[in-house]
Design a protein around this nucleic acid. Structure first.
Lengths: 201, 201
DNA sequence: TAAAGAAATGAATTGTTATTCACGCTATGG
DNA sequence: CCATAGCGTGAATAACAATTCATTTCTTTA
């Protein structure tokens, strides 16, 4: 017996793995998945290209994990807003505003997560996360309907539609308008979502 | 002067051009843009690979034209429904149903046009067509608001949101459900759209 | 300190498609 | 029927990025 992984090696390896993910995340946030080539990720992480393959079997795996961790943050943020204070109507407003505000804070990342053309396997990952957003909304809708705040409706359809509506409206005008216009567009989108769920009032 | 293009040559060339486009359209409708490689398009059109380049400078150009002609048909169909008989509410229903029915009739094509990962230049083309759908809806919304059938609202935002909602809802459950379920989902989507525009009644 | 095993390296390889181009073929008009 | 110009061909090339792997460098333990 002449070699066995020690705690310090384990720790360093964990560090390297994290720095690869971080490098990928940064590049994606700056220039989309397109910009996160293996040959670009490696130097950012302070390692050689080949080394990435000691930590991730393929680029797809690395991207998938990058995508998941970035998306999960967004879903969590929306979830937190959906579970916040106030009635369902207020919480839906909050969730929508949260989504929009975060997307605007990092547009490039938002585009990468929502709409950038990616490899089909990544697209599958994206689909799953769209489902995750939809599930957050579904819960809120169920509660709102039960409380009589929202109209009776096909909840999964509405939830999916809201996810689509958010993505689409963000892709277009919002990304180009100035800060003042943005706020009013954000309000328009919120109003639309409230109408779409048949919010009373 | 020993050579000049005659009518018959012109006609044959036009025919070849059309058959290239048709081959590309067919392949896209069957397997998406992914399946429409130059080496696959050529034999379908009954010509050699290199010949395509006598008619289209790059694959992107060919795809763009393919995309445009396929998309334009969809926009036209929706437009026709939006300009049909009945009040605005009925026409919006009609436009939505038309969009859904056509997408379901050729799902692979719908996916290719709406969501398939494509080259960024193609994505730009797609964005333009999303705007075209939105414009059709915008006109209908304006009219509906003027007539008091729809609520006052930020028309461009609603139009974009409806386009997003349609795309998203089609991507998910609809494509997997059976024919009966499909109809009811289509009705749910329509109901959602009517709520979203604040249709009275 | 040395042997043995892991890990890191990065240049070379691979795989994939779009694109080119030298050549032969066909149409035109005198 | 010939000179000319354009057309069609498809194998070869180009471009691009992911992935590999022989080699070097580091870690561990006896």
């Amino acid at each position: 017996m002449a070699y066995r992984e020690t705690a310090s090696v384990r720790a360093r390896k964990d560090g390297v793995r994290q720095s690869i993910l971080e490098a990928a995340r940064t590049l994606v946030a700056e220039g989309g998945f397109r910009a996160a080539q293996m040959a670009a990720v490696a130097p950012r992480a302070g390692i050689a290209t080949g080394t990435i393959y000691r930590y991730f079997p393929t680029q797809i795996e690395l991207f998938a994990e990058t995508f998941r961790s970035s998306s999960q943050r967004e879903v969590d943020a929306m979830q937190a807003a959906a579970e916040g204070e106030g009635d369902c109507r207020q919480r839906l407003s909050g969730a929508v505003h949260t989504f929009i505000a975060r997307a605007l804070r990092n547009r490039r990342l938002a585009y990468a997560l929502i709409a950038e053309p990616v490899d089909p396997q990544m697209e599958a990952e994206r689909l799953e996360y769209r489902r995750a957003y939809a599930r957050v909304l579904e819960r809120l809708l169920e509660e709102g309907i039960a409380r009589g705040e929202f109209a009776g409706q096909d909840v999964p359809v509405t939830a999916a539609a809201l996810v689509g509506a958010l993505g689409e409206t963000l892709l277009g005008p919002l990304l180009r308008s100035g800060p003042t216009a943005r706020e009013s567009v954000a309000d328009s989108i919120t109003a639309l979502c409230l109408r779409a769920v048949g919010a009373s009032g």
